[in-house]
Design a protein around this nucleic acid. Sequence first.
DNA 1: CTAGGGTTAG
Length: 680
Amino acid sequence: MITCYSHNNDGHAAIQLFKEMRQMSFKPDNFTYTSVLAALALIADRERHCHQLHCVVVKSGTGLVTSVVNALISVYVKCAFSPLASSSSLMASARKLFDVMPEKDELSWTTIITGYVKNEDLDSAKEVFDGMDEKLVVAWNAMISGYVQKGLVFKVFEMFRSMHSLGIKHDDFTYTNVLSACADAGLFLHGKQVHAYILRTEAKPAWAFMVSVNNALITLYWKCGELEQARSIFDSISIKDLISWNAILSAYVSKGKIHEAKSIFDEMSEKNMLSWTVMISGLAQHGSGEEALKLFSKMKSNGLEPCDYAFSGAITSCAVLASLEQGRQLHGQLIRLGFDSSLSAGNALITMYARCGVLDAAYSVFLTMPCLDSVSWNAMIAALGQHGHGNQALQLYEEMLEERILPDRITFLTVLSACSHAGLVEQGKQHFNSMNEIYGISPGEDHYARLIDLLCRAGKLTEAENVIRNIPFEPGASIWEALLSGCRLHGNMDLGVEAAERLFEMTPQNDGSYILLANMFATAGRWDDVATVRKFMRGRGVKKEPGCSWLEVENKVHVFLVDDTVHPEVLAVYSYMAELVLRLRKLGYIPDTKYILHDMESEQKEYALSTHSEKLAVVYGLLKLPKGATIRIFKNLRICGDCHNAVKFMSKAEGREIIVRDVKRFHHFKDGECSCGNYW
DNA sequence: CTAGGGTTAG
């Protein structure tokens, strides 16, 4: 009965029964002690628990019985893993018990080895392992799994080969370990070789039942980019378990195949927290934030308590939607549920607050998180950069280095963007060079694109051109796009046309390049060329993504399109706008019609400017939000130059703080000025 | 006593 309780993870019930047994004067035997200790291993989490149990065992006279000592070692090992106890001293005690045991069995050896592996002391694990006369497959597997977790792939291969040459048969645990090591390290050829080896070695019928191996293969193949192969392995599994379903679900989600992911999700007869979490965050990133949030509440109404990862997905949805109120509510729930120390949720919150325009809140989450990882640092550096605080972003980066956190590829992307937004050309170049020289990370296309952007914004087009010529690989679309927008900004026609031509070849369906080129011609008054570009674009069936802006009012999101006729209160917006523009002009605002892409009468142009979605949204905010409240606007494209200017005047005329997030960065308008200092 | 499925940063 005690064993039964402990198998059901009910340690307390097991102990209660043990006490009753002793009260009724039944004498516990070796089996009793073994199963009670197994139960205690479930709940013991402090050093003194271990020592007390140790005394009980010694007094009972069972201190030399192998199964009892094994169970006691197991308690020490589990406790060592608890955050409330000192891992190294408990492992030392466990080791002492192990060393003086009169008779060790298989379990004794593997318990101590896996104990060391779990506590990340691979050297000690290896030392014990080497001392085994007859090494069991379980022990091999435990060692291998340790190397997998530490990312020591070649150690994994070494062990795998040794087993083979010593004639020890690999089992399904060995295979799954090796396959996932390959998948993690991106060693796809090795992974495929292992797959071939398994097919050669294993008899068909046994192979058919190795679900776990097939599950690991699904992951290996989708990570290689071979989604179809992953799917056909999934289809070939005769008895799929939940992990098989979750594996193929993550495959589709990670590759952005939301439609396929949804149909897998719907087909699943059993789902666990992981399935929901994968689907929610997948929707947040590749689908729609709204759908993700709907799924999150559906999950709760199905009676599942979301874990912190699920919250992270929901919070990300709020970041995408710029839905500050919902984000705040989720933050509140997180605190109530005791998840506020969660790393992943904290990281998601930093980004959510930053992308909703509340930099202070992002920073205070960052400061109060109990522990940080590179994601947290990257998120906060990115947040500062997006809000135009380049110097603070760089300062935080230095702090990160002082904390001995190694920068990764993404750190450099955020650092370069931060420099670019703030015009910190020299620092940006230095950091770019340090990537390879100090940290051994070779810059990718995206890093070069940001470097080009940095140079171009600062007007250093020739230098940018030189950099492009010396890129050690064929420059991709993002690089030419950075160059083109630089040319537009500084009116460099010839270079701009060249960049645009490359883009039309590489990404013919991307509307952005056509618009940039047309914009460049429009600024120069070359209306014939503007018309040609537009015709060319139409001829290729490319449509301009319509500009839209949105804001949250009373917990509801209001969307405005250019020249909006859909929003129910748009008439009030237009009439207030007409009156407001007059006041702005008295303050010195002059509509800048070079931002209109069609050639028309100048009065018409001025009217067209006044119907830009970001202006409509700001005016709606002025009408609806309480006096003095900050207006937060979000736009799907870059803010237009005239709007940028107009909003500056609006902030002054109305005495309001206005924050605009466009696709690239934030603008904080106050007292007629913008935080970007007109550098964007 | 060993394995296979998740999150957050651009």
